[in-house]
Design a protein around this nucleic acid. Structure first.
Lengths: 342, 342
DNA sequence: GTCTGTTCTGAAAACGATACCGGAAAGTCA
DNA sequence: TGACTTTCCGGTATCGTTTTCAGAACAGAC
């Protein structure tokens, strides 16, 4: 592997001059620039960003921690972040925690040891005290992506999940539902936490019973979702509406499979709503009510926020909240007949 | 940020001893190890992997180039690769090319400059001569993931797309279809190339007409897919079966939307098959025939192949092909009535 | 011709960790 | 006891790049 010194020797100049040419510094004569560039081509020189990183003190890489890359929404965030950062000259080191907070902790340490210049994090559990303590001490800009930790040095880009959860609860109640169940992801992460809070708030405000056995939260696996649904539907006086408060496709699939197996008809026997929009819910028969939000915007803002803080060395951390929108479809757009009086 | 020297000073030892303790080398007395470890804790030392990388000559990172991370199948590959490599102590730098071969080239250079120890690549265009030339010269182990380039130094893990494409074509013909169209991704990437080859081969073998206007390939966007379908269906004597030869969800969605818009009924007017299995195709009404394969296995083998080549310094490149399986569902599981004779 | 001020270039010192080398101490064997 | 091996540890060169500093070359002004 050719080094800068070989280039310098070939061109008959000092290594420093090669740096000046390649770095685009102004004080270089045309003649020297020419000599260096041809030498670079001749020896096939590729700069060593590891060595440069050590000397410079920054690496031009950003770490990205995600919860679950199998979630299409998360994949989309990764996509846009990676894209936005690449054009700014940054590489992205991706770390997936698969929903396990312990993984987040080791990933955080590893990224720090790799000396990333900044961090975009969508951790599994934003209430983990160890994680919070570690994050508080990081000497680099950190942007939380759809996660909330109250710390001076952390920025965040959030979606307003509570708003859409409230809208959904009101919509269901307006259509005659009184027994509403919610199967959500772990409430140790902001989105599910907000969704559950929003729904329960509305139910209380409108005087509806909140039955604890109708509120299940946990891992977003297919099995967990279908088991949860089962236990809920086996209760006396089962719910007439189910809210899936987990953006993961697997959770939705688990519920749909179990409903099919039981012969429960969506739009007739039961109303269903999903936490996240996508082709599966919009093309399903019947089409499923879901929450829509601009993922591209979310990811882009997170990326730009890190870049901004990196540019002007010290920039206050900030938090922004982006809107969500309820898309009503056939699965909930019908009214439950009033119960017969006895 | 604490350095190894500060730790050494605090513990009253030489920097080299700190390295020995932290690196788990055998020749260290318990007493010195103890002193070093407490010093490490006291000053809050975190090793600098950038500096270590420079000195050691390897970075403990693997580059991963992917075509389109929005494709759920690709996301799953990223997931398993990242997982497998993390437990082996490697970090993953992800680079997404969004289907553009030019991006692949810059990503390749960037990863090389970052001195990744190995590369797992699922590039946009595995026929690009520039890319092939660059890859031929890489001094690190490279494993192609579902891509095929005939070079001595490149390994590959492939799926047998041709097999399933042939099975699908035979299945359709057996059910009375004579006019079969295929909308595929760019044939400059191995999977679509193989699928198209497989289908056309079978059609020729069984003496069916291969109409060039029924064979479209290009970007896997929703718009492209629906436009392609439109132009195909507007031909005289339109096809009775459509093969979607692109694993991307967007392509499938485009076709489904357009069929809905036109009021063409799947399973009655037309047969549909998808290139890749998933919740959307299995839960759609009617359920859609698709090709299933073990993505986890694919990704895991690619990861392990890089690791193996990294472990024993020189290991011949190898290629393995993994099976695919056709899952027949309602969308094709019906027989086309014989045409009325005139 | 000297002096000042640009503009360009080279020498050398870092950045932080590791690997090599050699020396000291401790153990082994005759 | 002496010679020899083994174990442990410190000093220091080194990885490839960038940055700082100072000097060289040159021009223009007096």
């Amino acid at each position: 592997m050719a080094t800068i010194r070989e280039v310098a020797d070939k061109a008959g100049v000092a290594p420093a001059s090669v740096t000046r040419v390649l770095g685009g510094y102004p004080n270089v004569s045309d003649e020297l620039r020419e000599r260096v560039l041809t030498a670079v081509r001749e020896v096939g020189y590729e700069p060593d960003l590891v060595a440069a990183g050590l000397r410079r003190g920054y690496t031009k890489t950003i770490g990205m921690i995600v919860n679950d890359i199998l979630n299409p929404v998360v994949a989309q965030m990764v996509d846009v972040v990676e894209d936005e950062l690449r054009v700014a000259g940054y590489g992205v080191i991706l770390a997936n925690s698969n929903g396990q907070s312990a993984h987040d902790l080791v990933n955080l340490r590893l990224l720090h040891q790799r000396r990333v210049d900044g961090l975009i994090a969508s951790v599994a559990d934003d209430t983990n005290p160890d994680l919070i303590a570690t994050m508080a001490g990081l000497p680099i800009p950190v942007v939380l992506l759809d996660r909330q930790i109250e710390l001076e040095n952390l920025s965040a880009v959030l979606s307003d999940h509570r708003y859409s959860a409230r809208a959904l609860a009101n919509h269901l109640i307006d259509h005659g539902h009184r027994q509403i169940a919610i199967i959500s992801g772990a409430t140790s992460a902001y989105p599910s936490r907000e969704r559950v809070t929003g729904v329960l708030d509305v139910m209380r405000e409108r005087g509806l019973p909140v039955r604890p056995e109708f509120q299940v939260s946990g891992r977003g696996s297919e099995e967990f979702a279908s088991r949860s649904l089962s236990s809920i539907m086996d209760q006396p006086e089962p719910p007439t509406a189910i809210i899936i408060g987990n953006g993961n496709t697997a959770a939705l699939v688990g519920v749909l499979h179990e409903l099919r197996r039981r012969g429960v008809q969506i739009g007739v026997d039961i109303a269903i709503a999903a936490a996240e929009d996508g082709p599966l819910v919009s093309l399903y028969t019947p089409a499923i009510t879901a929450v829509e939000r601009d993922i591209i915007d979310l990811g882009r803002r997170a990326a730009r926020m890190v870049l901004a803080q990196l540019a002007k060395d010290t920039l206050r951390a900030q938090t922004i909240v982006l809107p969500t929108r309820l898309v009503i479809r056939e699965s909930t757009d019908w009214t439950l007949p009033a119960p017969a009086l006895h």
